[in-house]
């Protein structure tokens, strides 16, 4: 039985079925980062996928933009409890990027410029569930929000949508990334409220 906080509840927000449990709606786009924002010139940017035999699939900025670009309309949910509904992104599907990647491994570690890491099962990156995104609301993605390009995996808490994405490493087993070593859940499903250890 929950403890009642006397007199609480007069300023409550409207509930919304689009919100996972424990989330509230924001119109802002808050920034959460563990350190300074890295600055990456698109001339130097590249994204790679490395499989178990060390084969590297690599795309520079022009090569990424030569691939089919999708419009993504999605809700996003941050573990710090804000959610933003109906956000608009453009990016390249991970299905496209994984098309010629030969792997039997089922786990990945995302590596980023600046050193951030996060772990994601491969299945959560495929079947139209994840993108390398470089455009938010019709503008180039801000460095504060992960530009020039970030991973976008909106069905998981947003720390999994790694900013300043640099590459994906295939792994035989699940391993914790940065926040997963610092108290946050290995998987991070907002609908199951998988926030912490």
């Amino acid at each position: 039985m929950a403890v009642i906080s006397r007199g609480f509840g007069s300023r409550r927000r409207e509930s919304d079925d689009s919100l996972p449990p424990g989330q509230y709606l924001t119109k802002d786009f808050p920034v959460l980062s563990a350190g300074p924002t890295p600055r990456i010139d698109t001339a130097d940017w590249e994204f790679s996928i490395t499989n178990e035999t060390g084969v590297v699939s690599r795309w520079n900025w022009e090569q990424l933009h030569a691939l089919p670009i999708e419009d993504i309309d999605t809700d996003i949910h941050c573990v710090t409890r804000w959610s933003k509904l109906g956000t608009n992104w453009r990016g390249v599907s991970l299905d496209t990027l994984f098309k010629d990647v030969d792997t039997v491994y089922e786990h990945t570690m995302a590596h980023c410029y600046g050193g951030y890491t996060t772990n994601i099962p491969l299945a959560d990156l495929l079947d139209g569930k994840a993108w390398i995104a470089f455009d938010f609301d019709g503008e180039d993605l801000d460095p504060e929000h992960g530009g020039p390009a970030r991973l976008l995996v909106p069905h998981l808490y947003f720390w999994k949508s790694a900013k300043w994405i640099k590459g994906l490493q295939m792994l035989p087993q699940d391993q914790p990334g940065f926040w997963e070593q610092n108290g946050y859940n290995m998987y991070g499903d907002p609908w199951q409220e998988q926030r912490y250890w």
Binding site: A2, I4, S5, F8, G9, R12, G22, Y24
Partner: peptide
Amino acid sequence: RLTAEDGYQAV
């Protein structure tokens, strides 16, 4: 976590 008398909660 705060719980109102009618069960409403916010964290």
